[in-house]
Design a protein around this nucleic acid. Structure first.
Lengths: 171, 171, 171, 171
DNA sequence: TATGAATGAGTCTTCATTCAT
DNA sequence: GATGAATGAAGACTCATTCAT
């Protein structure tokens, strides 16, 4: 992502970009913020949703959103690895709220469902959350890396099978 | 990764790099190849290991190696997203053998264990493979992104809990 | 000719050059075009000038312009021999219109003068054209190579004597 | 011409080149010297040949050699224009003996033929020499620039017609 | 507000040259 | 006598950024 490309995509001159953002980093973070906000909102509300809908429906919804956001922004975030200064500053700014926070929220949701007796008392909420979101994260990476079509399953089928497997963990 | 950094790290001049590698791309691929080869070897032999050792031990070993290789090379691969020309050429060169191949091999291993009756006939080998490797992949990303220490569990504990959860999928 | 030199001569940074020209080749060709255009124009109109002025005056004028343009651009063109890729592309792009085209036009002019009976029917227009322009071309080369002052004659005297000799060919 | 190319062509390592030549400049000049020596020899003997053979035969022979040497070494010399430091040093080293010396020798040969009454007393030996060698020089340049095949005449025919025209100057 | 024109710092890459072996 | 390994300097080109208008 170069400033020239961003400017062309925005229909602005490069100079105009600098009226809206101090530098490329600020612009980058703004874009990330916009793309992430809906998902973050959804994830933050997640624990309070325990008890409503079925767990299966809930996980399916989360998986879909996760793949979407990981595809959009996860890949942008990966590009951070090419600019270590930015990465370091991000790490610092994140504080406790890194991308693994989503896993924590999903884990907490599952813990509450456990309290409600809707899933097995022996299940591990944290592990289930890591498995589900991890699988979605990797799927987004694969799709970007080799192309959506090169993957063995459609996204819908992937979600269905993956959530079903996670549910087996929870019974 | 700039050629200057690579040169300094190698204790060479930039010019010397070009005696060993035609260009930066060749160097990059050579590094990737070296780092990936052991893991690729392990993964290719995996299906034939069905029946030996316990499934639990096998999965634990795979998880450990996967986290290691995803940490090393997965992150290098992510940097590819900052150089789209390289990414495109890699995608083309990969053919069927992309990074998702590991998931296929693990899935095949589990299918054979299923044939041997060592795991439930109702389990989904493909889903279990995606869950385990996905969780490892994401853990490697998190560790690189926020730092190893910021994660709630040690790697050993993560492997144990994650493999245990996957095994619940398989019984 | 390095981009740094061009930039300094133009009173610009190297980067600024690339706002005006895609690459060094485009810049090079633009310069050549500007320098050559007046001479090309003069040469293309030459055949239609048959019958007007004396042949001697006409040849003197052409010789003067030829030395000037060969000095300016011929030497630039010679520098092409140090960059074979550029040379090859130029060769291809030139099609029929290479630098020998000027010789053809001068030859055609003389042929028409021949039709008008102003020069001998036995003269060879093509040979006369090659002799005159060849002598001018080589003189430009010598002047650039050893310095103007090292040559035995002034340019004016060179033109006079050379044209006179060519005219002896034509009577 | 890079040192790597020279080394490969010579079947040597680049380092070995430096056992034989102090630097690239010395090598370049050695090559030029070897290629030019036979032509220089021929040209130096030229004045003493006045009276033997016909003038026509003599000029034809000179023209052939000139085209050959201009093709070989003239083009090498042109590449000098891309390396001004070398060019300047050459200019200085040349003293009186630059490439225009050949024209002087041919002129002197024609002057002697004039003394012998074998060509017209009114002819200009200097101009005739410049015309003939100039035409050969330019032909060599054209051949190198646009390719031998793109020129209207074969070399043999070019020599014949050009020498004939020069002879018309001399009667 | 928006931009055209400009640039310093840096990128990958190649070159002529050196020297220990 | 020959070379493999190495490099400082330079080359073309790109990037994020500034500023007068």
């Amino acid at each position: 992502m170069t400033t020239k490309e961003v400017a062309r995509a925005a229909g602005l001159s490069e100079a105009a970009l600098y009226k809206y953002f101090r530098d490329k980093e600020e612009l980058f973070l703004a874009v990330m913020g916009i793309r992430l906000r809906p998902f973050i909102g959804m994830v933050l509300e997640l624990p309070d949703k325990a008890g409503s809908e079925t767990v299966s429906e809930r996980l399916r919804a989360i998986a879909g959103e996760a793949i979407a956001v990981y595809t959009d922004s996860g890949l942008l975030a990966m590009a951070l690895f090419a600019e270590p200064a930015l990465l370091a500053r991000q790490r610092a700014a994140l504080g406790s709220g890194g991308p693994h926070h989503a896993n924590r929220m999903l884990s907490e949701y599952l813990r509450r469902e456990q309290s409600l007796g809707r899933i097995s008392a022996e299940a591990s909420p944290a592990a289930a959350a890591d498995l589900l979101l991890g699988a979605c994260f990797q799927r987004a990476f694969f799709a970007a890396f080799v192309g959506d079509g090169a993957l063995p399953q459609t996204e819908a089928r992937f979600i269905e099978e993956t959530v079903d497997a996670v549910l087996r963990t929870l019974v």
